[in-house]
Design a protein around this nucleic acid. Structure first.
Lengths: 334, 334
DNA sequence: TTGAAAGCGCTACCAG
DNA sequence: CTGGTAGCGCTTTCAA
């Protein structure tokens, strides 16, 4: 474990010069720069991050908070962030705080307060006021991805637009009886609620307010499956179209329909939001978002704000793109 | 941002006493301990981790390496680790190094070498010798989960046993034509290869060596689906049983079978390994492993080794448990 | 263009 | 049981 003192000695310069040469800040003659670099290389010198942090106040680490990594969206965002951070030479420390009180409190109270990062990326959080205050008190830049309100979301698709487009797609195909599938009745996650409201408004604008119907279910593939089995089992109440809160739920519904012998899209149209990795396989029509790219974007934004904290957001929402496959079709005449 | 000096001043003691009182090491009278604690609380004192690290040589951070977080197994292990680390008060820094050369090199060369952790958990890695040397050179304890050989795997199910049990399950049900589905031909991931070999040996012991057949495919749900569509499309070559390398592939195969109108389990039995979150929904018979628990176990092990580096492994593999659902049945008389 | 020296905030040793 | 002091390994003025 050689330190910068060793490097300096081998290169025949002082610690300060070695430091300057290595970090590239301040005047150093090209010749000494080389000698120092060679010395460092030959010694396999690696600076001690704690020493650097203590001296500079920078950790070269970014904190990432998300409720879980087990769902498609979050895993993808995380990989996007990770990949981008690698290029920037920044470490990623992960904080997953599920909805359960215990781990939530530990993360917010014990971990975040340590400020072991130069900035924070908050993904899909629906923080209560106290949490927001906490994050602010950290005095570190925060970039939010698809989150509830922490002074506005920085990176996200335009959910209102996406769900409107999805609903209109079915309406344009002649559907009237269109169900919105997914999300709980109470304790809405912010995104889910946004999407449901968008659906509702679109239905109302089309004069289909009376047909609007929300079928709740856990926002997972099996959740969508179970709920769809119930929903579709009785022909008299069966809708002709389903707008799912996301692709996982949509795919669950498609599987349910198949299981019940209901043909998709001939007898039932299903549309999702995401463009999940399974969408292709199920030929799911959906509104594509690109979580990996959102992760990368969040990193760029955060890097900027770390470099210059006076910069404030103003990112316009990404636009989801309709990917037409074969889970939707013109409604059969009556 | 008050430091320990402020705490000391407010409490009317020296920095050293404050430090001892706060860390709970060394003699401090109960009375001063209280006063210091109160002072710290009233000031909202949070120790600077870089200062602590510099002084103690401990980072209170654990590094986690995995190839991806987008597959079920890895995401679950990660959450298990995270949850357990939270209790220990340890930070988690994540390194995902996919198989691509570029990110692999960055992670190993630039990130790992910084030693920003007290220990490392390597999940599902198949490191080449150079990588192993690298990890050793870090001089930090390493715990491996379901990985290839880094001086033996610490935490994993007994894959040989699991796949033997799976294969025997089908053989016991009278199946003869049993295909092993999943994994590439070349560049085996260690686990996949282990499982295939176990299948092969079991078939041979049962005198069915001639029937053994490996159908390769990407180890993902759509991968299993595609391959199974091909495999099952021609009745004359269709097996009566499939042992899948993991549940994702197994479920892909079940979906393929349904799509082709082949009844599971009446005409085709499918068995997996994992007990994936979708297994229930597809009524998949499988050998259950518990990745969350494996993550937690890895943390316990690592914590021990960090506390006392002389301790060396000796963990015996976990035993997967057969979960019988309805994707397997006695073979139909021919 | 370079070097000496003063911290960054904490722990740990050694006296008392 | 408590306080003074010397680092931990680096960066960063400030002089030279």
């Amino acid at each position: 474990m050689s330190g910068i003192a060793d490097v300096a000695r081998v290169a025949g310069v002082s610690k300060s010069t070695a430091s300057r040469a290595l970090s590239g800040s301040g005047y150093v003659s090209e010749d000494t720069r080389r000698r120092v670099a060679d010395a460092a290389a030959s010694l396999g010198y690696v600076p001690s991050t704690s020493a650097v942090s203590l001296a500079t106040g920078r950790t070269r680490t970014v904190g990432v908070m998300m409720p879980t990594v087990t769902r498609w969206f979050f895993a993808e965002v995380l990989e996007g962030i990770q990949h981008s951070l690698l290029q920037h030479g920044l470490d990623l420390t992960l904080y997953t705080a599920g909805p359960d009180r215990a781990s939530h409190d530990i993360v917010y109270r014990d971990f975040l307060s340590q400020r072991r990062f130069d900035g924070l990326i908050a993904v899909g959080l629906d923080p209560v006021d106290r949490d927001v205050d906490m994050m602010r008190s950290l005095e570190r830049p925060v970039v939010t991805v698809a989150s509830g309100d922490i002074a506005g979301v920085d990176v996200a698709i335009d959910d209102e637009y996406a769900v409107r487009r999805a609903t209109e797609h079915l309406i344009d195909l002649g559907h009237r009886s269109i169900v919105f599938l997914g999300g709980p009745r109470a304790h809405w996650a912010h995104v889910d609620e946004l999407r449901f409201r968008g659906y509702l408004r679109t239905m109302e604008s089309a004069g289909l307010g009376a047909h609007a119907h929300h079928v709740t279910c856990p926002v997972t593939l099996p959740g969508g499956f179970e709920a769809a089995v119930d929903l579709l089992s009785y022909p008299e109440q069966r809708p002709t179209g389903i707008v799912a809160v996301c692709d996982e739920v949509a795919i669950g519904a498609i599987i349910a329909a198949r299981r019940l012998g209901i043909s998709v899209p001939a007898e039932l149209s299903v549309i999702g939001i995401d463009d999940h990795e399974y969408a292709e396989m199920f030929s799911l029509t959906t509104l594509a978002q690109n979580p990996r790219q959102q992760g990368a974007l969040a990193v760029d934004l955060l890097a900027q704000r770390i470099a210059d904290p006076t910069i404030v957001g103003g990112v316009k929402p990404l636009r989801a793109r309709l990917v037409s496959r074969h889970s939707t079709a013109r409604v059969r005449e009556g």
